[in-house]
């Protein structure tokens, strides 16, 4: 079901990770991605994974949540794994049967890719689990604010992101409702050819569009009534302020990157 998706959800909390400045968290996440893709050895990769799992422990997000966010991606993981396993043929041959050939090179690359993707998912889920969507868009707005100079509408983009995040659950619920209503009128959504099924979506998509426009109109009015007039002169409830812990976090991250590079070179 659509409702079970946990990626992108926010779990309010009070851990160190939650309290980090959202800008710092974005930078650390980017640094972590570098950490995942830089090394060529399992040692380097292992250090990256230690880093992210450590952060996960600090965040006190239940481990189950992480597994849940990985679950829908298992097919992708398997696909990448198999692809790499069978189509890379460097190193010694481990196993051969008719056309299928598995080599040490293929196996290592497959393992590398899978670990990297898992790391990527854990890292990015950790960011969204511990950072409210608003803080996230806020941080993106501020990190991108130098781009205002080249006339990029940074505030407007961030506002749009916030509103989109706000209305995703509402629209999912609405889609569910419209689907039930049309099914009750005998709409057949489950059988038929691809074209028939695409056609069957019309009675769902049109009402959904109509209602989205209506909501957008209402929301614009409500925003105007609350004195919204663009980004100029706006203040924020939650100030982004860097605290010592943010510098410590950046420092630790830098250390881990250095460690990754070293491990890769030395071992």
């Amino acid at each position: 079901m659509l409702k079970d998706i946990t990626i992108g959800q926010f779990f309010p909390g009070n851990s160190v990770v939650h309290r980090l400045d959202s800008r710092v968290k974005i930078i650390i996440t980017i640094a972590f991605i570098v950490m995942l893709f830089l090394p060529n050895s399992f040692y380097g990769l292992g250090i990256g994974m230690v880093f992210v799992l450590g952060a996960f422990l600090l965040s006190r997000i239940p481990f189950k949540m992480m597994l849940k966010s990985l679950k829908p991606l298992i097919p992708i993981l398997l696909f990448t794994g198999i692809l790499n396993l069978f189509f890379i043929s460097t190193g010694d041959v481990l196993f051969e049967w008719k056309l299928i050939k598995i080599t040490t090179g293929g196996a290592t690359t497959a393992a590398f890719m899978i670990i990297r993707i898992i790391g990527l998912i854990i890292g990015s889920s950790l960011l969204t689990y511990t950072t409210s969507p608003i803080a996230l868009t806020d941080a993106i707005e501020r990190l991108l604010s130098p781009l205002k100079k080249i006339k990029l509408p940074v505030h407007e983009l961030a506002m749009m992101m916030t509103i989109a995040l706000r209305f995703i659950p509402t629209l999912i619920e609405e889609t569910d409702k419209i689907m039930s209503a049309q099914k009750a009128r005998g709409a057949d959504l489950e059988t038929g050819s691809l074209i028939q099924r695409a056609k069957a979506l019309v009675p769902i998509l049109i009402p959904l569009f109509v209602s989205s426009f209506r909501r957008a109109e209402d929301l614009a009015l409500a925003m105007e009534c609350r004195c919204y007039h663009g980004g100029e002169g706006r203040t924020r409830l939650k100030q982004l302020k860097t605290a010592p812990r943010d510098y410590i976090a950046l420092f630790v991250t830098a250390g881990f990157i250095a460690l990754t590079v070293l491990a890769d070179k030395m071992l």
Partner: peptide
Amino acid sequence: DNQIVATIVEE
């Protein structure tokens, strides 16, 4: 539903 802008009540 159509007049709440933010994803957190206080915001």
